[in-house]
Amino acid sequence: MEMVQTATRIGNLFAARRAEGRKVFIAYLTAGDPTPAHTASLVLALERGGADLIELGVPFSDPIADGPVIQRASYRALEAGATLAGLLETVKEIRRHSEIPLLLFSYLNPLMRHGFGNLAREAAETGIDGVLLTDLSVEEAAEPVKRLREHSLDTVFLAAPTSSERRLRLVAEHSSGFIYLVSRTGVTGQQASLSSAIAPLVERIRPLTDLPLAVGFGIGRPDQVAEAARLADAVVVGSAIVQFVETHGKSPDLATELEVFTRGLTAPLRTS
């Protein structure tokens, strides 16, 4: 696949952090959880807490790659009336306050239903920087990637410990912005210890691409963030943040509490 120059916010972020010798912290948030009205303030709280890039999870009714925490968040968001159109409005609101890179993170069907042509245009206009779709294999990605790239959106694909050499090459070719390495076979969710599959996966894919490598799945504590950051350019925390939002969802100070929680998670990257 032809390499196209795409959105600058993600590329600039990684370039800046690399120059500073710092690793990138990526936070996942299920958009619309606990309600769509919360999302903008929670994104800004994550940024104040030290997150460098936000994955905005577009909730889907059948999240087959997600563990119970993100499943429950998806159901809560849908119950609360979350929609893709509503999320794009939220992004406009976020963009009035922040230039933090935003990556839509979802399953194919809700975006396909919206139409990739429309979605790419609207996403670019509102200030989305890229898209990652868990169930979009590179084999089926030609049309979506074309549409998204036409509007300078980054397309991030997943690489997994089970991926063959041939597949890692395809993932690298189809990705822009960064590549998301799934740390282990399994669904999203916190683990007691960091997967031993990360290091060998980094080693296999590093020679195939110059793109930054992010590691996610099963990372939820500051010590795990520190450990993962030694192996890759960026660390993704998802379920731990979503769990925090679930536990504190009713609190009037949710945003501030999330900021403090995020500060703890990002601390190892600030001091390193």
Partner: peptide, 12 residues
Amino acid sequence: GGRYVPEVLMSP
């Protein structure tokens, strides 16, 4: 048809 699954399952 096709194959629309997480990357973990593609090689398997």
